[in-house]
Design a protein around this nucleic acid. Sequence first.
RNA 1: CGGGGUAUAGCGUAGUCCGGUUAUCGCGCCACAUUUGGGAUGUGGAGGUCGCAGGUUCGAAUCCUGCUACCCCGACCA
Length: 492
Amino acid sequence: MAKDFVKRSENYSEWYNELVVRADLAENSSVRGCMVIKPYGYAIWEKMRDELDRMFKETGHQNAYFPLFIPKSFFEKEAEHVEGFAKECAVVTHHRLKPKRDGSKGLEPDPDARLEEELIVRPTSETIIWDTYKGWIKSYRDLPILCNQWANVVRWEMRTRMFLRTAEFLWQEGHTAHATESEAVEETKKMLEVYADFAENYMAMPVLKGVKSPNERFAGAIDTYCIEAMMQDKKALQAGTSHFLGQNFAKAFDVKFLSKENKLEYVWATSWGVSTRLMGALIMSHSDDNGLVLPPKLAPIQVAIVPIFKTEEECEKINAEVARIQSELKAKGISIKFDDRREYKPGWKFSEYEFKGVPVRLTMGARDLAEGKCEIARRDTLEKQTIAVEDAVATIERLLEEIQANLFQKAKTFREENTRKANTWEEFVNILENEGGFISAHWDGTPETEEKIKELTKATIRCIPFDAEEEEGKCILTGKPSHRRVIFAKAY
RNA sequence: CGGGGUAUAGCGUAGUCCGGUUAUCGCGCCACAUUUGGGAUGUGGAGGUCGCAGGUUCGAAUCCUGCUACCCCGACCA
């Protein structure tokens, strides 16, 4: 079974170049470009979802749910939005099947059951939500509306990649409505901060915060803010986006309100989302040749306890000793898997918890028991130490914090080591070819130049960092003046 | 949608060019025994519409035609 994991996961190696991850999180289903997320993988998603959900609620948001199907006409109302999504929609045209008319076996859509108007399986919910908000908003007293939705969406991509780009994926999408532009902009920024906080403090994944260039902007947005992370193969991954939509959707769906000044005004909007792509980001940020490495705050199992015994009598004695440690850890809210399965040998279990990314493993055998000791192993560094049983709880608690901090620091150092400045085109191309990673460089600010650079090198502007310093320089491609550096990289 | 490739047991595969005994091997699975501090060993066993549909042939995993699905490279994208 274990080796089976290894073989299958060789498919994942493309994510890491040389890295091989033995993680049995998901598998392709027979449906094109979709994936089945297996229980252990889903447990990680649930941990992420629960933390994000808590953060959303702490910032004043509520959950709601909107329909999966969106009438085609809704998409036609916002010009840029249609253009952005029209090429990748799943379209429902019929509501009934019947046996094939030519008598061959199989079914076909019943021509009599054709829908008057086609339904689109949501690729994102702006349109149906704004159509709904129209009925909710009459006065400034109805604002702001701060809703979030946990849902699945479908985008019929030409090419799919496990976790990063599947035809159907799980995500959350926040959609807010505000009375003023400044309040909406503030909301957009606030939610980007929530994402950055989550990425860095829970996923232990450092991110760059910034604004997207026009080419990379969300279809229908005035501005798209994003967090960008660097994976272990030095490619960039967009981990989350927060969009300031201006009054585009309010105008398209005619959502107006009476202000305090008794004037009829269009509503200001934002939307923001993160998806199961974060699972890919998590895997690609920390994993090593032995499998997954999970940050303790998101690990479904934080501590695995493996007793080693020959006889049932030994087993009982060890279990009794371990039970105490277990109940103390549980009281502190630490999740534990106590594994005294007879079916597998200890070595097998060690490997299993390693490729599942369990942060800490506690092992106790007859030898330890006699000496009042146990062995503690940490997943991030693979170090093992033997300690006194009475120190186990405190040691594990400290280790979990240490691992969380260490993973973040390691990823941050890696990113810093692989972020370089380029001042000329030669330098730029040279870094891309030989080093990879992020490149901080000047750009003349035009979409044409960005497009040209992408064509020549496959590198795109990941973001214009919020903290970019004012600095006079020349565009690496055109030599035209520029006032700040932007971040280029090859991206997923 | 363009270019290239693949489809044989739960997984990974040999055999296909050049048609011919009972379709190969490894992992996994089941039983028993010995094992248990880093993925145990031995013996025995179960498991197959050779992607689907036609065709050629005495005979097809193998040759021909059509279809479908998946993978890789492009264009697209969270």
